[in-house]
């Protein structure tokens, strides 16, 4: 793959494959080492946004920390399956607490 990738999606379940149909390359992976490697490869291909399934997002805090300092890639969690674990909302809560000191939502 020499083509530049703008966005990508990584997930555990096959619902993530839907993203493939709208032009976002998808990767199904099961463990965190694999996810870490995929994210590394994608970053080298100057990928901008990586959507990560919640379950994997929770499993790779070190990887997220590594990329949090630079503006790209943007790694954000999305729900897989029919119910959300609330990882995204928890992240918002953490940010509010970090910035203001208390959770106001």
């Amino acid at each position: 793959m020499k083509e530049r990738i703008d966005m990508a999606a990584i997930g555990k379940e096959d619902t993530i494959v839907l993203f493939n149909a709208i032009g976002i390359p998808t990767f199904i992976c099961n463990d965190k080492d694999e996810a870490d490697k995929i994210i590394f490869d994608l970053t080298n291909k100057s990928c901008r946004i990586i959507y990560v399934g919640e379950e994997i997002y929770e499993a790779i805090p070190e990887t997220l920390d590594k990329y949090s300092k630079s503006p790209f890639p943007i790694i954000i969690p999305i729900p897989e399956g029919i119910d959300s674990k609330g990882v995204g909302l928890k992240k918002i809560k953490d940010n509010v607490e970090k910035a203001i000191g208390i959770d106001i939502f």
Binding site: D14, V17, A21, I24
Partner: peptide
């Protein structure tokens, strides 16, 4: 069947 159907992207999303 589903995997096959979704294999080919309709357009590549660019930003």
């Amino acid at each position: 069947g589903i995997m096959e159907a979704l294999m080919i992207p309709s357009n590549s999303a660019k930003i």
